[in-house]
Design a protein around this nucleic acid. Structure first.
Lengths: 218, 218
DNA sequence: ATGCGTTTCAAACAGATGTTTGAATCGAGT
DNA sequence: ACTCGATTCAAACATCTGTTTGAAACGCAT
């Protein structure tokens, strides 16, 4: 039966997320899956094939994707808040089938060939969903370049939570990383970002015509 | 002479920044340095020793550190702008002795034992410098927890530039990453962040007493 | 029970990589 | 010219790791 195949996928997701593609060994994966060393080559061809299978099959999420949760909300400001909270909860989740967020964070820093597919299937859809929300919050100030920069600013704060966690743990050792706390972090980022978008919109509104950049210093 | 030692440090910095600690091979480093394979073990004990030497000796920066550039500016808002621009330029610099930013970004995502020293000597000082600036911008709204969250939001946007560059290159293939463009990105982040800080300060001011979180939705 | 395709297993293989070794080379002090 | 410590070099070594292999075990239709 292909029970071995499923156990292999689970174990691989866990190990890849914890160690990264390079440092993960097929021996550890097989051992964790209770499978023989040759199983990965039999079922997936090679280590790379297993990795791609993990990436491709990472859509069995418990909760709905952040972009889908946010799409249910009509009001732009509330949609941004929902998006941020859902995103923070997802990437900070420690639950078993939730290593997909960690895998994505790893791919961003040290890309393999799998990054292209990841950008196509997960990252770009989320980027564009958030971009639409940001554009609606900006209203008539929503010039393409400004929307792009602001979208990037919002997403960077969210990604940072998972990316810089080793550093944050050292800077603030007592921090709480529970799901409840993850939601609070998402709220804070949403509040910060909404304040920024308001300011950017108003600054662009006072100047009838904004050039390439909009540095409203002082 | 210890010319070999210096060449080894230069080559190691470049290779470690490009490949990461694990994927960097002493053979490539020695080849790039024009040194014998055994040189790294003779001069630094082992690969790990070489890596630590690179980390420790990474302070020979061309330009002044962002925190020091910002410290010269009295006005908080302008200091924040200077900090962001200097930071963006530093981490996006492709210049030879400037792989330190990349090394830091790598350590954040996949920490080795060297991260502790890095946090102590580089990250925490910058964090606290920026935290001071953010506190001054926030004025009387500068409660510790709020300052911490806002500082994190600012720094995350900056770090994202180097961390997510592979993704950004795929999302926006035509992007310019020159030094001039790096400065513009720093300006944009500063503008976004200043607008956010203004909004957060005003929102905190209107409510005489702010609780744990300050989600000013709608 | 028999035969056959599928799956599992232990063992070995092959390549990469960090490290060590012992000789050779160099450079300065006498 | 000689000596001695420091440095460099080519080669070998040891280990880790992905992959292959051929046999054994299994499931199942006949």
């Amino acid at each position: 039966m292909d029970d071995t195949r499923r156990r292999l996928l689970m174990a691989a997701g866990e190990v890849f997320a914890r160690r990264g593609y390079r440092d993960a060994t097929v021996r550890e994966i097989c051992s964790l899956a209770g499978a023989n060393l040759a199983a990965v080559n039999y079922h997936f061809g090679d280590k790379k094939g297993l990795y791609h299978a993990v990436i491709a099959g990472g859509h069995e999420t418990g909760e709905a994707l952040p972009k889908d949760q946010a799409a249910l909300v009509a009001a732009p400001r509330e949609a941004l808040r929902v998006f941020c909270v859902a995103f923070a909860k997802k990437i900070l989740s420690e639950a078993k089938p939730e290593w997909h967020g960690k895998l994505m964070a790893r791919e961003m820093a040290e890309p393999t060939e799998a990054l292209d597919e990841m950008v196509r299937t997960m990252i770009r859809p989320h980027w564009e969903a958030l971009s639409g929300i940001v554009g609606r919050v900006l209203g008539e100030a929503a010039e393409p370049e400004r929307v792009r920069q602001c979208t990037q600013s919002v997403i960077s704060q969210l990604v940072f939570l998972s990316h810089a966690r080793p550093v944050l743990n050292r800077l603030f050792p007592g921090d709480d990383w529970s799901v409840r706390s993850a939601a609070a972090r998402g709220e804070a980022i949403a509040a910060f970002s909404l304040a920024a978008l308001d300011g950017v919109r108003d600054a662009a509104g006072s100047k009838s015509e904004g050039g390439g950049e909009c540095s409203a210093s002082r």
